[in-house]
Design a binder for these strands. Sequence first.
DNA 1: GTTGAGCGTT
Length: 255
Amino acid sequence: MSHFGRSGPPDITDTYSLLVLNITFRTTADDLFPLFDKYGKVVDIFIPKDRRTGDSRGFAFVRYKYADEAQKAVERLDGRVVDGREITVQFAKYGPNAERINKGRIVESLPRSRYRSRSRSPPRKHRDYKDRDYRRRSRSRSHDRYEHDRYHGKDKDYRRRSRSRSASPDYSRGRGRGRYEDDRRSSSRSMSASPARRSPSPRKSPSPRKASPPRGESPDIHSRHRWSLSPRNVSPQGRPANSRGPSPRNSDVEE
DNA sequence: GTTGAGCGTT
């Protein structure tokens, strides 16, 4: 009984799902099982993984048999340090059995006095079911959030789920945003040059022809135009529009 | 080998 989610959903009857966030990328169901099972009867644990890489996404779903136990686990395991990282346990909102939870009114059934203490009705965002597919497009959108949040201040704590404790500005420390800026700067500087191919010229003058292209807008403009108008062309598989074309290698872009 | 807001499979 260690391999959860192997035979798919065993039985989602009278079972409540809990969402565990903030877990490490190496945490597995086996690691969470003993933790959650200690506080209640865990029916099944499922951790969504990437189909391409197969790595954990950083969150898991724990199914409890009873709501009272699940709620208890949420209060007990929520904020617990697992694998050196603080995990966030809360009732799953979106899901196949979301209706069940809605009907069960688990959130209302339990004393919200304590529940509100931790997270006072987090409106989150206008997320829809179709939006959930978008999340897999890019896991790291820190820079996006930053621009969106701008400098409001209180909004910054929002992402922390009002966990009190501390602002924990460690997320913006060192890597993450700093690296992105560097990348962007570098890109801007040598945007004309081929990003994939770098001039191995040891001399200081990098690409003399590109430095002053009076009318040499043939290759440079072309290459830049292509990159701009085909941002999604980066797909390795290309477009399966032509199934009859068994050409795995698309020589459309090769310089 | 990295990352860090979020919501799920046979």
